[in-house]
């Protein structure tokens, strides 16, 4: 048990916290195949779950904070540093870098909360709910296709699309951030499983290709 009196404010807490897949850091390092597929954890992002009717007045206020709300499944709205993922017709996930969190000097959660005000809906700090895996490389799609039933071909699944689906039989929000890079948001309790599942799926690319 850490001696909490020795911690100096929020930065002391930042030093002792552990991300859900921190114990896999070494395995992710050795399991990655540079030039083919690389898996990293990008932990501690600021995330906020927002439930609001996008057509309402409070929805417009929230949209002004995040620079827009996605309209349909797959869309990602937002601006530099703040992305809004579509989870449902009135449910969104706001993702931002760690520094955007109120405890670190940002104002994301607070400004969302004040934008909602007393109107029906909710803004919940979900930063600890999910962790982030960043899967990139020319083989990244092939790795995901082993456990995801969606059509991940680039003609269908374009960069800047986020879909909530199943990868390796667990619920995951899959966000294609670039031509060959994906972000996966598993819940924290699934981080270990999904990390090991992805490493297993990546293993074959460490060996020379069999013609």
């Amino acid at each position: 048990m850490a001696n909490t009196t020795a911690l100096t404010g929020i930065n002391g807490l930042r030093d002792i916290r552990r991300s859900p897949a921190s114990h896999l850091a070494e395995a992710l390092e050795t399991g990655s195949v540079p030039g083919k597929v690389v898996l990293k954890e990008g932990p501690f992002q600021t995330m906020a779950g927002v439930r609001v009717d996008p057509s309402s007045e409070e929805g417009a206020r929230i949209a002004s904070v995040t620079s827009g709300l996605p309209v349909r499944c797959g869309e990602v709205a937002g601006r530099e540093g703040v992305s809004v993922l579509w989870l449902g017709p009135s449910e969104f996930l706001v993702v931002a870098p760690e520094e955007a969190h109120d405890s670190l000097g940002g104002d994301l959660i607070g400004s969302l909360t004040s934008a909602l005000g007393d109107a029906p809906g909710q803004v919940v700090d979900l930063s600890a709910n999910r962790t982030t895996y960043e899967l990139s490389g020319p083989r990244a799609r092939a790795v995901l296709e082993k456990g995801c039933a969606l059509d991940l071909h680039p003609r269908k699944f374009k960069p800047g699309t986020a879909l909530t689906t199943e990868v390796g039989n667990i619920p995951v929000t899959l966000w294609k951030t670039g031509e060959e890079s994906f972000r996966l948001f598993p819940r924290a309790s699934f981080a270990d499983f999904l990390g090991r599942w992805l490493l297993d799926a990546m293993r074959e690319y460490a060996s020379p290709e069999v013609p």
Binding site: R72, C73, G74, E75, A149, L150, D151, L152, H153, K156, F157, T161, L163
Partner: peptide, 10 residues
Amino acid sequence: AADSTTTGSA
């Protein structure tokens, strides 16, 4: 109708 086009539907 319209929404189904945006998804990676198989």
